[in-house]
Structure formats: structure tokens, C-alpha cells
């Protein structure tokens, strides 16, 4: 049997353990889609696969057991999913090009979750439009609040939703619910002063627990949505580590710009001999030093006045070699 495996992989299939069988990989940008696509995935699995579907860690579906010869038919079935999810495509009915930049994850966010500070899937999809398709190995994830259910700190770029709580003293009834919630569930940024909560802006992480706790709408969400951008978390066999705080009270436009700028930085500095042309950004930053990275990442970025940029940036993590 002759099969160009590089082409197969580039067409969003996996070469599996079983000789001659592939797995079709269907990514779901932002992790949210119309239920009707499930029926197509079922059809692919039952007609061409082994009848099972794996739900992937990056919010996609992987349909195993597909005979190499059936891949064109699978691609035809995939067409309506690709169109419906607006996945980048080069040629109709031929599947879609897999990409070094991974599917952009999102927790369920404000579409459903009471804690979510923004529509995570929608922002993920806007980010996708800005960066896809791209061969560079970038992992980006969106989470609605500081609970970080999407584990964004394990990504190169983690986006955490924030709201800037607005206080109307005339509605406060001094019940203390906000202070208690902030203390027990969040960072303890609130204290009662003269019977009313006082917010320590330095401490506050904009989680919105005070807004949710307030029984009289004395606390409200800000009109603007803010984000915390975390930087260069990763897993892997060398030095897994959590992403660190980069910008607090950041805005959407700046985040997209920073990510796009980082692609330029990586193109400039990636190890030309990196296996498969992929290198975690963090290792590149380890090599060039943080100041050089920041020079590229923050080029032409105008942060909102409220934004706080962490400095210096230090990563820790686990080193298997030690």
C-alpha cells in the first residue's frame, strides 16, 4: 500500500496503530456547535469508522477505524460540518487542512454558565479568524472566569474573563454577602468599611462573585468586558509549566494583536531544526529572553488605561531532566 502520510495528516486524519486505518479529526472552534452536526459524525463513524467516536481534549471529535480508501467519502460527508463551523478549507469536498495552530478551546462561558464573564466561544471564533490557518504550534484557550475550567494556563495564551464591579452605594443594604463570598470563594478584595464594602482594586481579579452574591443589585457588571491574558503555559516531555500572569484588565483588540504579533516573533526565532517545524513558544522565549519577546508581542498595542502588565515574567514548572 502506498500512502503519503504527510498529506494524510495535513488533511486532518491521523495515522493510527492499525495498518491501513486512519482516524478523522473534526475540530470544533470554540467548542460549541449546532447539534445537527452530531448526526453527520455518527454517520461517518458507523459507515466508515468502527462505530465509535473519541471526544478529544481540544474540543473536537476523532472518528477511528477509517480505511484509507474511504477518506475521500469521509471528506465529502465532512463538507457541511466544515461549512457550518466555518473551518478554513482549501478545496470543496476535500476535507480541511490540519494546522500547527491547535483548535481554539473555550469553556461553555457566558452563553450558559452563570459565572462566565463573556461569550467564550464567540471570542474563540474571532481569534480563530485572526490566526487560522497557520502551521506554527500555538495553543490558545478561553475561559469565562478565574475558575479557569478550560485550564487556559496550560496554553501559550490563556484568556480569562473579568468584569470590573460597579458599586451603587444607594442600593447597598449591608448584608455582607459580597464580602463573605469574595473572602471564601475568591481573593478577599472586599472589606466592610462603615457598613459598606470597599474594593481593593489591586487585589480584585474581576471574577464577579460580588455581583452574583448581591441580593439588591448594588454591585453590577461593568459595560466593558476585561480579560486577564496569561502567557506560555505548556505540557510536554521537557519542562511543563503553568502560564503566568501577563496583562490584567486587558481588552479584546489588544489580545488578538498580541497573539498575531507573536506569530511574527516565532517565525523570526523558531529553531529551524525543530522536529516537525514545531516548537513551543516558551522554549523560544527561553532562548531569546523575555525582553525581546515583549518587544515583538507588544508592537503597536495600545492597552486600555486600566491594564496592568506584569513585570518581570518568571516561569517555574517541572523539569524532568533534573
Amino acid at each position: 500500500m502506498d500512502m503519503n502520510t504527510a498529506k494524510l495528516k495535513k488533511n486532518a486524519f491521523r495515522v493510527t496503530k492499525e495498518r491501513g486505518l486512519a482516524a478523522s479529526r473534526i475540530r470544533v472552534p470554540g467548542g460549541h456547535m449546532d447539534a445537527r452536526f452530531l448526526a453527520i459524525i455518527q454517520e461517518i463513524a458507523e459507515k466508515y469508522g468502527n462505530g465509535t467516536v473519541h471526544i478529544t481534549n481540544r474540543q473536537g471529535f476523532e472518528v477511528p477505524g477509517i480505511d484509507f480508501t474511504d477518506m475521500p467519502k469521509v471528506n465529502e460527508l465532512l463538507q457541511s460540518i466544515i461549512e457550518g463551523l466555518e473551518i478554513n478549507q482549501e478545496e470543496m469536498n476535500c476535507g480541511y487542512p490540519a494546522s500547527g495552530t491547535r483548535n481554539i478551546n473555550a469553556c461553555i462561558g457566558a452563553r450558559v454558565c452563570p459565572y462566565g464573564c463573556y461569550d467564550t466561544s464567540a471570542f474563540a471564533q474571532r481569534m480563530e479568524k485572526a490566526v487560522f490557518p497557520n502551521d506554527l504550534h500555538f495553543k490558545i484557550a478561553f475561559t469565562g472566569c478565574h475558575n479557569d475550567c478550560a485550564k487556559v494556563r496550560m496554553h501559550d495564551f490563556g484568556i480569562i474573563g473579568m468584569t470590573l464591579p460597579q458599586f451603587d452605594p444607594n442600593r447597598c443594604v449591608s448584608c455582607g454577602a459580597c464580602v463573605k463570598k469574595c473572602q471564601t470563594k475568591s481573593v478577599g478584595a472586599l472589606t466592610l468599611v462603615n457598613f459598606r464594602p470597599e474594593r481593593n482594586h489591586k487585589k480584585c481579579i474581576g471574577c464577579g462573585e460580588c455581583v452574583l452574591a448581591c441580593p439588591d443589585a448594588a454591585w453590577m457588571r461593568s459595560k466593558e468586558t476585561y480579560y486577564r491574558l496569561t502567557l506560555l503555559g505548556r505540557s510536554g516531555k521537557k519542562n511543563p509549566r503553568m502560564g503566568v500572569n501577563f496583562i490584567k484588565w486587558c481588552d479584546e483588540e489588544s489580545i488578538i494583536k498580541i497573539v498575531c504579533n507573536t506569530y511574527e516573533y516565532v517565525k523570526e526565532y523558531i529553531d529551524p531544526n525543530a522536529p516537525g517545524g514545531k516548537e513551543h513558544i516558551g522554549y523560544i522565549v527561553d532562548r531569546t529572553g523575555v525582553p525581546e519577546f515583549l518587544k515583538w508581542a507588544l508592537r503597536d498595542v495600545t492597552l486600555p488605561e486600566i491594564a496592568e502588565v506584569s513585570s518581570p515574567l518568571y516561569w517555574n514548572g517541572i523539569r524532568y531532566s533534573e
Binding site: P114, D119, G144, G208, L212, C214, A217, M220, K223
Partner: peptide
């Protein structure tokens, strides 16, 4: 209607 005035993101409050 207070747009965005609800406790949950993107919800209003009528008061």
C-alpha cells in the same frame, strides 16, 4: 430596562 444590569453576563434588569 437596565441593559447589562442583570447579575449574569449579558442579562438585563428591569427596575
Amino acid at each position: 430596562r437596565f441593559e447589562g444590569g442583570g447579575a449574569f453576563t449579558g442579562t438585563d434588569c428591569v427596575r
